[in-house]
Design a protein around this nucleic acid. Structure first.
Lengths: 231, 231
DNA sequence: ATTCGTCAAGAGCAGTGCTCTCTATTTTGA
DNA sequence: TCAAAATAGAGAGCACTGCTCTTGACGAAT
């Protein structure tokens, strides 16, 4: 059906343009995205936009999903393009990639890692893409463990947490010691804490050299995790 | 003027009740607080509420300020009621107090540490109360430095950051080495990263023993900072 | 050529922040 | 004590929001 598909293609293009305009609005007006405003920007009447988008929340969800994917892509690409044996280099690259993406897409970052939207509940298809950054980080630790460049911390986390972490490891990184995974989670927490503080203005009038500050803090965390220093 | 003060007192009570109702709404509906809904809850017509509150944003600001104060009080009280020489104990107590406050006031926490409200710009009178938690944390390090229980990290942060941190230290903690302050900031970042992840659902279906997990992660950070372990 | 699905538009409902005006009450000052 | 002034509340109204329903037009398939 070639005749029908031109219709379908136009429709797909419309949806893409709606998303693009919505992303633009997101950047200026934050999470209170207005479908009417988007429609206006497209020379459409407000009701017409409901032909393409079921609701405001669905549009937001679509944007969130694409944002997760964008961040995940950036993070994984950074990891893949670094010497696999340079653990600390990979860690830095991944953290930098996450920060760069966040700085380039602040509104979308806020959507992902800011306060959850009141009525809005994240649908299940967001949980997997949301896990890509932490998985990438812990993947570095897994590799370091595999080729012996990384030593497992001596002491285990307290029991109930050890079990939680072991269960988590079983799913994604079979055999990874809980103590190491715990350090990976600490790094993950630190990373997004850092980005959030910078993006949400917590560093204003305090730290002016954000770039070096970020690098240094990431380095501190790499020390805690035990990533070998470059010689 | 006793006659005048009864009016003033009623007025103050009204404002307090408005804030209380608003806080309640905040808890259920998040940051999109509706003045009309608050007015309705008080049996008032919507326009009447503007006699007591200049605007929605002003009400939000008032709530934010009180929230900062509540968190600051909790944090400082926890620090004050712990053996001053037990550095790690104080660190834990402060972190726990922050988390406890956040768990008890999730909506207000989101207001403080979530995505910034689009149009809203934090007024200047919020910056001081906002600094109380990090100042409390770094105060522990200052005390540790003073009585020799804490050793200064060997290496300095990279130069531009060292200068930033030195300037910051000059204001609040004269003489504190930049390297130690950097670790304090790392702890501060970690703390609110931890709380945000827990509160914003990042730990769902992963960590079930939140309490022990939190304690363990805080402990990891205390290790990085170099807080002496209890014997 | 006619049916049928799709699209756009308009009106409308319920909600929002906020302003203005009007009235009743309370406080204040002479 | 009594009038003037300040204050509280109510109502209407403006511009905005998400969303629904109906109506009319257009294009594609039978």
């Amino acid at each position: 059906m070639p005749a029908s598909s031109i219709r379908a293609r136009v429709r797909a293009e419309m949806i893409d343009e709606i998303k693009a305009v919505a992303r633009r609005h997101l950047a200026t007006d934050g999470a209170n995205l207005s479908l009417r405003a988007v429609a206006r920007d497209m020379g459409m009447v407000s009701s017409a936009i409901y032909r393409y988008v079921p609701s405001r929340d669905d549009l937001l969800t679509a944007l969130i999903l694409e944002a997760y994917d964008g961040l995940g892509d950036a993070v994984e690409a950074a990891d893949a393009s670094t010497d696999p044996h340079d653990l600390r280099g990979r860690w830095h690259a991944v953290c930098r990639a996450a920060r760069d993406w966040a700085l380039a897409h602040p509104a979308e970052y806020a959507l992902l890692y800011g306060s959850p939207v009141p009525g809005y509940a994240a649908p299940d298809d967001t949980v997997l893409p949301a896990q890509r950054p932490p998985l990438t980080l812990v993947g570095i630790l897994r590799d370091g463990l595999a080729d012996g460049r990384l030593t497992v911390p001596a002491e285990e986390p307290p029991e109930p947490v050890r079990a939680d972490l072991a269960a988590l490891a079983d799913v994604f990184f079979p055999g990874m010691p809980a103590a190491l995974l715990a350090r990976g989670m600490a790094g993950w927490t630190q990373l997004f804490g850092l980005i959030s503080f910078e993006l949400f203005g917590r560093l204003n009038q305090t730290i002016s050299h954000r770039d070096t500050y970020f690098g240094h803090q990431v380095d501190l965390m790499a020390d805690l995790i035990g990533l070998p220093r470059p010689e």
